[in-house]
Design a protein around this nucleic acid. Structure first.
Lengths: 331, 331
DNA sequence: CTGTTAGCGCGTTCAC
DNA sequence: GTGAACGCGCTAACAG
């Protein structure tokens, strides 16, 4: 495959390289006639800008980054994650921006990736997922000067702009829904204690019920174990809210083992919907989010942040509960 | 954040820019003493190469690409996929190579991404997953001249180098294992008909059993439906092999609905292991692959292909069966 | 207003 | 070990 440069287009079109550059970037300085002619030649030769040359001259690389710090045990997020990435890319593709993606073991490694990407000028900005309590990343990114958008939040330190959904109100809505079905004793099997959204959910849950949430590592094992503890206690809950789909699926299995009928004896709710929630019998009532759209909106916002045309937080739409067989009216 | 260039290092170290470049790249042309001195200065100033400048001068971008053409229904691959990507990156990180990642809807869009990446010189090579029957990608990539490694294969057209695991032998091993447990009637719920590995599995299955495989779209719905058809037939199978975890999980649910005991009435095997396979009761016997290691080896091999130091196919290790509760000895 | 020439960004490489 | 040219697109400054 021959490489096509602006120089060749200029030669072929019989004009200067700068004229070609102006025409290709839709900038003044060239007549309408010449522009059309140049564009046609470029089209015929199927020219594409060399991203390296562009990045070197201008200050844009045309790429943004996403790092997923993925402790081995956190498997429930996968489905959520691929939908999010799909949405992100659907938004990025309209501005021909590429996505640099990396999976690392922990936040320390994540920080190292940001440093490297920025030092090597590989990205124009990054999307930061899973904000944590006492999160070192906003401070790091702000110190580096690397434009970033926090997905989830808002940032407690007010350092990074963010896009977020209201987990607090979502949890309150779930509890109210269960209450309206007659549930008095509700339990909450939460996720990783140091995630910001976990704290939000816990605070909302405890405020609404007065009961204490239990934190876990999101694993199926934890979901099963905690469910067993809850259901074999003196006064077992009549409804359990799980912070992800995996734990809810494990929970429904454990309930069956213990001989508890779902939803007659105990109702179950999964925080995030996924195909898993439709594999169980009964199917799991789940909190549905428009994750693809969320990703789109996040990417769009990041591009604005990179351009400097946006700062501050945006609240995304609230997720809604999709009732299925695992919950039902109690009398 | 101040940007550090080779020019500054040269000034600070009192040498020429080329000397710095030689020293930083461990190339001859500079004395050991000077090299050390330069490296120390670079270290102090925490210099990092500007990837754009490097890409522009040399012919390497220091990035490789991976496109996932993900039809909405193919959800079972997610877990496999993240493990694969983790492995890929663990190998890439040792050579400071970045991964450009994109999720698209279909192979046509995937081809378009390859064209764009290559035209824009964004990648040095790509990893191609899910080879298909009559796959247009090897031909395209070869025409473009974009170095590529096929994950799965080998490429029937012999166009692209590949790394692959022997699905044929794996299927044969599964059938033999089931036979050794006394199973006479075995069924195979296969995946998408146009995937190459689906064909390999089907051919191996039909050669070993004489029975016909059924192709599906990998969905839980298909897994459940086909299981129901199989189990309510005149002579139901005593063992079923599913091409992914999702369908096997749906299958175990359907068996329960029909009142068939697993494994007493019917044994089930999932092709790919995942946490899902441990969420069922009984747990699913599954084919275990070292997906992380597979990704590592694939990335390593791609880098060799990019360097031109490798061509041809490599066979990766064969997956092994991990027996769990969903299969057992029949008499 | 239309178009050109010159020089920049930054690391690499080749001739000296 | 050095100086200078190069890769490719962008962008002042400048000429018609």
């Amino acid at each position: 495959m021959r490489r096509v440069t602006i120089r060749e287009i200029a030669r072929r079109a019989g004009v200067s390289e700068s004229a070609v550059s102006f025409a290709l970037n839709n900038r003044p300085g060239v007549s309408e006639y010449t522009r059309r002619m140049i564009l046609q030649v470029a089209e015929e030769m199927s020219w594409r800008p060399n991203s390296a040359a562009r990045a070197l001259g201008g200050s844009r690389t045309g790429a943004v980054g996403l790092v997923l710090a993925r402790p081995a045990e956190t498997l429930g997020v996968e489905s959520f994650f691929l939908r999010l990435v799909s949405g992100i890319q659907s938004a990025l593709s309209t501005s021909a921006t590429a996505l640099l993606f990396q999976v690392v073991a922990d936040v320390a490694a994540e920080a190292e990736v940001y440093r490297r990407w920025w030092a090597e000028r590989r990205v124009d900005g990054v999307l930061v997922v899973d904000p944590r309590i006492d999160d070192p990343r906003p401070n790091l990114l702000s110190t580096l000067g690397l434009p970033a958008l926090l997905i989830g939040g808002p940032d407690p330190t007010g350092t990074l702009p963010s896009i977020w959904a209201d987990d607090t109100r979502a949890m309150t809505a779930i509890v109210e829904h269960l209450r309206s079905q007659g549930h008095q004793r509700i339990a909450h099997v939460a996720g990783l204690a140091d995630l910001l959204h976990t704290r939000h959910r816990i605070e909302a849950f405890e405020a609404a019920t007065g009961a204490a949430s239990v934190t876990t590592d999101y694993s199926d094992e934890a979901g099963g174990r905690v469910t067993r503890e809850l259901l074999t206690a003196a006064e077992p809950p009549t409804a359990i809210v799980y912070d992800n789909d995996i734990m809810a699926v494990a929970g429904i299995g454990t309930a069956a083992e213990l001989g508890r009928a779902v939803p007659a004896d105990v109702s179950l709710v999964a925080w995030d919907d996924s195909p898993l929630c439709r594999l169980t019998h009964p199917m799991l009532t789940a909190l549905v989010r428009d994750t693809f759209g969320f990703g789109q909106r996040a990417a769009h916002r990041l591009l604005e942040v990179v351009d400097g045309t946006a700062t501050g937080d945006v609240e995304d739409e609230m997720p809604h509960l999709e009732p299925r067989g695992s919950t039902s009216t109690r009398q």
